[in-house]
Design a protein around this nucleic acid. Structure first.
Lengths: 347, 347
DNA sequence: TTAGGCTCGGAAAAGCTTTTCCCTTGCCTC
DNA sequence: GAGGCAAGGGAAAAGCTTTTCCGAGCCTAA
């Protein structure tokens, strides 16, 4: 059987196809790629042979020739969090439609490991590299040793002027949330958020203060509580805020830095007999479906459009591969998702 | 400058290194790989040149030659869920230590897309393929067209006798949970779980019933509630179970099919004034940290060891690449994580 | 009838590394 | 001083595909 001629590990090469079709290798290639000038009859014969033999061109050889691997590396840096998933999904979506595959790897915040992985990606001749997720904020730049490979940062930022970064528009997102509260008639708005070392915490707080100021509302620094990203910090913060009991009257809304915090806040308020949204309206951040929708009442929150951000990152890296040069930071708009925690829907 | 001789897109080839060191290509290769017999002086000179030029061997060419790409494909099938993350982490851990990289791709449950992706992976000459995650349970087998590429299923199962699958030991895990409840003196145990079409739901229920039987405890089918994976189903199920009010005395523990369900259950019980764990003890499933630890009281639950499962999958695929042939289904043991929802720790 | 042009298909190089095989050179020993 | 052996290093093929260039027919038109 011709099938067996060159098969090792069950792989058919274009040689086998050419032999089976009785043409030269070059001709076979042309027939399959639709290049050159060949008789239809020849083309057909080659294609038919290829099908019969289950021929599948070797991308390795093809890439070697083309000097392009149709591959990009995704270097994740802290542990894959829930943010990485939609991001990855978006990236894959836009890359897959261009026939580009993605190598994922995780440096687990170890710089030495990160360098090794970058090295390995460069050796694999990826056409581009996307770095995502961070511990320090902004993070330190990745060194590509002038390999001339496009590099971009997604969902993380880096100082260098040369770098190209895609991040959510925290400022705009936070505005959306606070303005929504004001639009719903709230005036005494507190803010509970995560650790200050995150840029997003700082930006969201800035936006919160700016919006209050613009509306001539008091912004009292005792109503800004910076802590952790956890549900339990939400509880704790409520205790601080509503401590005495009477102080509760000072607050008719809370803008939270994450849905997890918001959930802790909502639960803590319920336990104190404070009604959400009647007495206090809540806005979360992240639109982490599984938390936001399960909270009672379901959370009105800000969605960072991470999947969209991923898609943008994907198409950006594609355009950079095609020679486009980009620098600076692009901020992807967030959107407000209205559920029930502000009474916005019912009213 | 020698550096520039052959550089295009900033890439140095072994040619450049050889030229810079004044040796032939073959010699350069030997020097860098530590093969052949060369004078130390020569080796050094070549290495030094390679360093100076930033030489990085082209994996594409190497793979082509070696007929091995040091690459495996990970085909995820329904949307990346929270289970995919630890799995991916584990897989990557064991593969990275062997210098193998992973291509991830997601078919989003579209069979046509799945076939395309498999095709693309085969064209890329991956050394192995791991398929994970499922919608239908067990799922249909993947067709590799006899490409002779090792294939294994992780966290999903397939009917074929030929297939090799790695899944959590749901049966054993559920036993752990129910036995823990019994050990803590509970006798009237209910079970609330997800949709029946999941094998894990069926297995966990089977284990639940078996354990009750073994301990001579009544197992009343009205105490088994099959529904959805959500928190709200937990609420709903509690309403059914404790509906009248007096019926509550029939139950002193609930084994839940997931942590999300368990959280809904705990919240619902608290609202009814039923104390956890004093009146009713709860065991969850998944050890989804972010839910289990935030529940009040924190959930005692079953951990599926997904990261371990991922590591096993990684090393299994490595051994299959090395020629090992494996079939059948391996069930990775679960472990009990004790927190406070059973009173196990306090007592 | 011959020259020019067109069509079809083959040969070979390029892309990069590894490995095998062989040649050269130098040194040692007889 | 010559032969032999070892060590060092080079040439070339292999691995697979693509693409360029070229040649061989054949047809047509002068």
């Amino acid at each position: 059987m011709a099938t067996m001629t060159h098969r090792q590990r069950g792989l058919t090469t274009i040689r086998d196809v050419a032999a089976a079709a009785g043409v030269s290798i070059g001709t076979a290639s042309k027939a399959l790629r639709g290049q050159g000038s060949l008789r239809d009859e020849t083309r057909l014969r080659v294609r038919e042979a290829a099908d019969r033999l289950g021929f599948r061109p070797n991308d390795l050889a093809q890439s070697l020739h083309r000097k392009k691997s149709f591959t990009v590396g995704l270097l994740s840096n802290d542990s894959y969090g829930r943010f990485t998933i939609p991001l990855l999904e978006g990236i894959e979506q836009s890359l897959a439609s261009a026939g580009v595959s993605v190598f994922v790897c995780n440096a687990f915040d170890d710089t030495a490991r990160e360098e090794k992985l970058i090295d390995s990606l460069l050796s694999k001749r990826v056409d581009g590299i996307i770095v995502t997720s961070r511990r320090t904020d902004p993070r330190t730049a990745v060194d590509l040793h002038n390999a001339g490979v496009p590099l971009l940062y997604a969902f993380t930022r880096v100082q260098s002027e040369e770098a190209f970064c895609l991040v959510p528009d925290d400022l705009g997102g936070a505005r959306l949330g606070v303005e929504h509260l004001i639009k719903n008639g709230r005036r005494r708005i507190a803010h509970i958020s995560g650790p200050e070392r995150f840029e997003s915490v700082r930006l969201r707080r800035d936006a919160y203060q700016a919006v209050l100021q613009e509306h001539g509302l008091p912004h009292d620094s005792s109503k800004v509580l910076i802590g952790a990203w956890s549900e339990s910090w939400g509880h704790e913060a409520v205790a601080k805020l509503f401590g005495g009991g009477a102080t509760g009257h000072d607050i008719d809304a809370i803008f939270c830095g994450s849905d997890q915090i918001a959930r802790g806040v909502v639960d803590a308020l319920r336990e104190r007999g404070v009604r959400v949204p009647q007495d206090v309206a809540i806005v979360g951040f992240d639109n982490w479906e599984i938390v936001a929708a399960a909270t009672r009442p379901p959370l009105t929150t800000i969605d960072m459009n991470l999947q969209e951000l991923g898609r943008e990152a994907g198409s950006a890296v594609l355009s950079m591969i095609d020679g486009g040069h980009r620098t600076g930071t692009i901020r992807i708009p967030c959107k407000l998702v209205v559920r029930d925690s502000c009474g916005g829907r019912a009213s």
